[in-house]
């Protein structure tokens, strides 16, 4: 056995993009895609030769070979799925805002939470901005962090739209818990421009020690770390230091696996989830 088999619940945009990312992984083996009704996503997975089922969580839980399960459904569904996966001894990677398990941002706190059996991926905006706040905090002590995540309208699905409050609240909590900002605020903007705009994230921090050189070094180093698992993560505007205020702007271009490149928001949360799964798989494989 040289790869760890994974299942995905939820064959929508996120689940399908995850499938393509798993197919490229050196530690993960795509095995099972499940949903609750027949869908294009299930047909696509079947066509690629993977097992499929309309029995949702039950099907993957009962499969002895699957070790890691991505849940790309809804928060309400994950609350029901989590105990089933736990009882079956599967590791769950939760793409929803359910937050059954600890928040994880791979370059910030994966080592701290690696023994958990349920990982929450925060939000796309959180995956894009928490690494920078965390890095600035290490050298400058962040009192307050504020982020503005702008997404193309086309990349924001009905789930995001119907739960925009959860997005801002979950991102804020992530900025505080993993970013280590004393206080935080998250703002999300949808822009319908055509051609669609790339995901863009502005990160403002109010810091105690505005050491320009240390901040620039920390941000540049952190960007390289994120690029390890999100190649399209780029600096648009390098740190601007204005008294105790630091402004950084980051752009995220998607890998274009299944979703278009402008959907950097979907790409970054999926890439982060894969990074978590690969780390766990490598450990299982003793690599």
């Amino acid at each position: 056995m040289d790869k760890i088999k994974v299942g995905i619940i939820g064959p929508g945009n996120i689940g399908t993009d995850l499938m393509y990312k798993v197919m490229r992984s050196k530690y993960l083996q795509m095995d099972f895609m499940t949903g609750i009704v027949e869908s294009e996503g299930l047909k696509r997975a079947a066509k690629l030769g993977f097992k499929t089922s309309t029995e949702g969580v039950k099907a993957v839980a009962e499969d002895p070979e699957v070790k890691i399960v991505f849940d790309a459904t809804l928060a309400s569904a994950h609350l029901a799925n989590a105990p089933v996966l736990k009882a079956a001894g599967k590791i769950a990677i939760d793409m929803t805002p359910a937050a059954v398990g600890p928040y994880v941002v791979p370059c910030c706190n994966l080592d701290e939470v690696k023994d958990s059996d349920n990982f929450n991926m925060v939000t796309c905006g959180g995956q894009a901005t928490i690494p920078i706040v965390n890095a600035i905090n290490e050298v400058a002590d962040v009192e307050y962090a504020e982020i503005v995540a702008s997404l193309s309208s086309k990349s924001a699905g009905p789930g995001t739209r119907a739960s925009i409050d959860e997005f801002t609240q979950t991102t804020r909590k992530g900025l505080e818990i993993i970013g280590h900002a004393d206080r935080a605020k998250a703002i999300i903007i949808l822009n319908p421009a055509e051609p669609p705009v790339m995901m863009c994230n502005t990160i403002y921090t109010l810091v105690k020690n505005p050491d320009e050189k240390a901040i620039i070094e920390a941000v540049n180093k952190r960007i390289k770390e994120v690029q390890q698992y999100v190649p399209g993560y780029q600096l648009r505007v390098p740190p601007i230091i204005d008294g105790n205020k630091v402004t950084v702007i980051i752009q995220v271009e998607g890998a274009g696996d299944f979703l278009p490149k402008y959907s950097g928001n979907l790409d970054i949360i999926n890439s982060a989830a894969i990074a978590v799964a690969e780390k766990l798989a490598a450990k299982m494989l003793n690599k």
Binding site: V148, S150, I187, I189, L190, N191, P192, A193, V197, C200, T202, R236, V237, I240, T247, I249
Partner: peptide
């Protein structure tokens, strides 16, 4: 020209930069 919408005040700095 970039068709920025309400609330994108952060893009003023992006454009200025």
């Amino acid at each position: 020209r970039r068709r920025m919408v309400g609330g994108q005040e952060d893009m003023i700095v992006d454009v200025a930069y």
